[in-house]
Nucleic acid binder design. Structure first.
Lengths: 128, 128
DNA sequence: TTGCGGTAGCGAAGCCTTTCGCTATACTCG
DNA sequence: CGAGTATAGCGAAAGGCTTCGCTACCGCAA
């Protein structure tokens, strides 16, 4: 088994992680039910993907007690942070602000959400 | 040649696009100089990648006049927007705000930049 | 116990990305 | 021109991700 985090989850792997974040711990059966809904792939494929992900350290399970129940090895929060960092690095040349400005200007954002961001900005300024 | 944008650029493709965004139009030679600096790959590899990308519609060139000069087929801005949209969709479940909040709270951001975001927020509110 | 439906796993095939060896073309300088 | 160097291109190999067929296992009912 490789080091956790040595590789980024691929597209399908991310889909599986998202399912786990929502329903873990979770038997293959349930993961497959959700996955095949969107992709129509075979049950064997889901099993294999989980075995690959287990090998990569992307998911875990209790080998002794419940080897059929899978969990995500990283939290949604951590994964998000990692993806975000990579995006900033690779596309925005390390500028978090460029990303934030583009995200804000391109998205539909409610007044409440705008206020929430203001509050966060105030807090950040206070700490400086 | 496939439709532009039918596929996301892969890792190496993105590296090449970044080089082009900085120096286009650009002969293979120069692209390779930059690419091999970071990766140490063969000249043939760079040529092939460009031919693949040309085929995918990720880069362009003037076939008649200057077939040796390559350009990116999408602007940095558009590519960024696409990546961002995908990240929001896949990892933040479509919530732009979740992403913005996480980006702000995880990055080093200067006071000027904070003010810049405030200004943008004000503008957005004005339009609603 | 035996047969059966539901579950898990392995190895190999298929596809896409990335790499490079070999060939072809163009360019320069004696 | 003609040899040698720089540049471009193609096809095939290598490697990784995704898919599935076939096999193995487990628990339950006849």
């Amino acid at each position: 088994m490789r080091e956790l985090g040595s590789t980024q989850p691929t597209a399908v792997e991310l889909e599986i992680l998202r399912i786990l974040w929502e329903m873990e711990p979770c038997p293959v059966r349930d993961i497959h039910a959700r996955l095949s809904e969107a992709k129509g792939t075979n049950y064997s494929t889901t099993v294999k993907m989980l075995s690959v992900m287990l090998n990569k350290g992307l998911v875990t399970r209790n080998e002794k007690a419940t080897p059929h129940l899978y969990r995500a090895a990283i939290t949604r929060h951590k994964a998000a942070k990692k993806f975000l960092g990579e995006l900033v690095e690779k596309v925005y040349d390390g500028s978090v602000m460029s990303l934030v400005l583009q995200a804000l200007s391109s998205g539909k954002v409610s007044k409440d959400e705008i206020d929430e961001v203001r509050k966060l900005l105030d807090e950040m300024e206070g700490k400086q």
